[in-house]
Simulated scan of single mutants.
Amino acid sequence: MMATTTEAGTGAQVPSAGLRGRHNRTNPTFYWMVVPAVILFFALHTFPLLQGVFYSFTNYAGYGEWSFVGFNNYLALFRDDRVLDAYLFTFQFAIVATILTNAIALAVAVGLNARIKFRSTLRGVFFLPNVLPMLVVGYVFSYLFASVLPVLGQSLGIEALSTNILGSESLAWVGIVVVAVWQAAAFNIILYLAGLQTIPTEVYEAASIDGAGPWRRFWTMTFPLIAPFFTINMVLALKNFLMVFDHIVALTNGGPGNATTSISLLIYRGGFQGGEFAYQTANAVVYLIVIVVLSMVQLRFLQRREVAA
């Protein structure tokens, strides 16, 4: 029989303290599931991060001996034109790509959410770019930019498309933006579609009765109601574009010259190929802080907009 005690004043019987303690005891299976994951996370993520922070205060080249140099690596970053140019390009690319990706994804999602034929098929088609390997996509677009578009531009008399834009220092970043937006919009479309499914149809029916047009319904009802999905899409898109690497490797490899060298590519080249392991590790630490701060500020601002909406 279950041991019970009578609660004073009510007459109700409740389990005794000893029995409650046995029921509140954590199942050992919990530890067998969680502890290995924590160990792996620490060994493969946290420890390398701490090790990188440690080496950022040294002159370690990735091999051989090293010694402490204090904050010299961090101070040198602000005097390095390569780093400043890479930051400028990365932020320019990330801001433009984030805005275009969300604008296009939201427009496509709203269109797919309407009552059109082959809606399910079109959803699969639009999501296809997200599952394609970036290097394959990059090589395909490299061929298009180098061979197909110049021929098309010459036949149409469009001077801007008559040459390979990836070979132009002023236009190469545009080609990278096109490819990045084309691929990234697929994931954002799916998230916006999920958000649109949460809006009751009665809301649109009531708006139609009141005489609200499509544009007014979008700004006064649809957009405010999917504000949380807009927030997560903006934060994730900006974070991913700030860490752009494989798009550039596949399309321009940082060229022409250093016109499309991002922070991630600069860290990789200098740290693993240029003997600047400690210096570029300091660059990576600074960039980690920048991304975290920007993501937090962006999240806080957009969440306030959700409340205001």
Rank of each mutant, 00 (worst) to 15 (best):
A194N: 08
G9W: 04
A8V: 01
P224I: 01
L299V: 03
L144D: 00
A37T: 11
Y204R: 05
Y60S: 01
L19V: 04
G255V: 00
F229P: 03
V174W: 14
F218C: 12
L251A: 02
E202F: 08
S67P: 00
E7F: 02
S155D: 11
K239A: 14
I158A: 12
E205W: 10
T198W: 10
F277N: 14
L193G: 02
I190R: 10
V297N: 09
Y74Q: 09
A250D: 10
T220R: 15
V148C: 03
L166P: 00
L50F: 14
Y74V: 04
G195T: 01
V286M: 15
G255M: 01
F272S: 09
V292I: 15
A206C: 11
L100V: 09
V137P: 05
V148N: 06
A107Q: 11
N253R: 13
V69K: 06
I158E: 07
F54W: 11
G167H: 01
S170V: 04
L238I: 12
A76P: 04
V292P: 08
V249C: 01
N102T: 06
L149G: 00
T222V: 14
Q154V: 00
S16D: 14
V131W: 13
G62H: 07
T281L: 13
T98E: 06
A103Q: 12
N258S: 09
S168R: 13
A250I: 06
H45C: 13
E202H: 09
G271E: 06
G11Q: 14
I176F: 07
N73Q: 05
A194V: 06
V244F: 02
N113P: 04
M134R: 13
V69D: 05
D85A: 12
Q51M: 09
G62V: 03
H247R: 01
F272H: 06
H45D: 08
I291F: 04
L156R: 07
I291L: 04
L40I: 15
V181L: 15
G11E: 14
